[in-house]
């Protein structure tokens, strides 16, 4: 009985050792790592559905998007970074997966217009600021200077007017 127990324990130990060796070998063969849904969604947010208009992969319920999300998971599990996954999708499916228009003219305009708009805003702000800087001394001179200038001009004009009135009476 005791001998049988010993053999049983030995066999059990052997089985455990064998399975450990097999599992470790399997783990070395498969370099994939587990990928969480959050990781998949973080990448999927930056990719667009191939079927719907302006809907990102993470919110799309179509089978096409489900397959693409699975593809994202596989690529991430293979050790690719999110940037590499996006690059891989662009390489395979074109720029439209990142929301860039497919039409080349449209794409060029869509890229240039925001920069033009920014330039316009900057220039307009700069022009307004410069005008404000230029106009400030003229529009709002210091109080004593303004008073003196006004009084000199007013006196000269009054005098000219009085002289003109007197001349008219003569």
């Amino acid at each position: 009985m005791n001998r049988l127990l010993k053999i049983g324990v030995m066999l059990l130990c052997l089985a455990i050792a064998l399975s450990a060796v097999t599992l470790s070998a399997f783990a070395q063969d498969d370099p994939r790592r587990p990928v969480t849904d959050d990781e998949v969604n973080a990448v999927s947010k930056k990719l667009y559905c191939p079927v719907c208009e302006n809907i990102t992969l993470d919110t799309c319920g179509t089978l096409a998007c489900a397959q693409w999300r699975e593809e994202v998971r596989i690529l991430l599990s293979e050790g690719k970074t999110p940037e590499q996954v996006i690059e891989n999708f662009v390489m395979r499916f074109g720029d439209r997966v990142v929301g860039t228009p497919a039409d080349p003219t449209l794409r060029a305009l869509a890229l240039i217009t925001p920069w033009l708009l920014s330039a316009l805003v900057l220039l307009a702000t700069g022009a307004v600021f410069l005008r404000w800087r230029k106009e400030r001394p003229a529009a709002a001179p210091s109080a004593p200077e303004a008073k003196a200038a006004t009084s000199v001009r007013t006196f000269a004009e009054y005098r000219a007017r009085i002289e003109a009135d007197l001349a008219a009476r003569r």
């Binding site: 228009p101 039409d103 003219t105 449209l106 305009l109 869509a110 240039i112 217009t113 033009l116 708009l117 330039a119 316009l120 220039l123 307009a124 022009a127």
Partner: peptide, 21 residues
Amino acid sequence: NFITVLAALILASMALIFGLG
């Protein structure tokens, strides 16, 4: 004047984007 030209340019490109789309 320069800002007006730039604004016109932006309007034109936006119209072009809309038209092409």
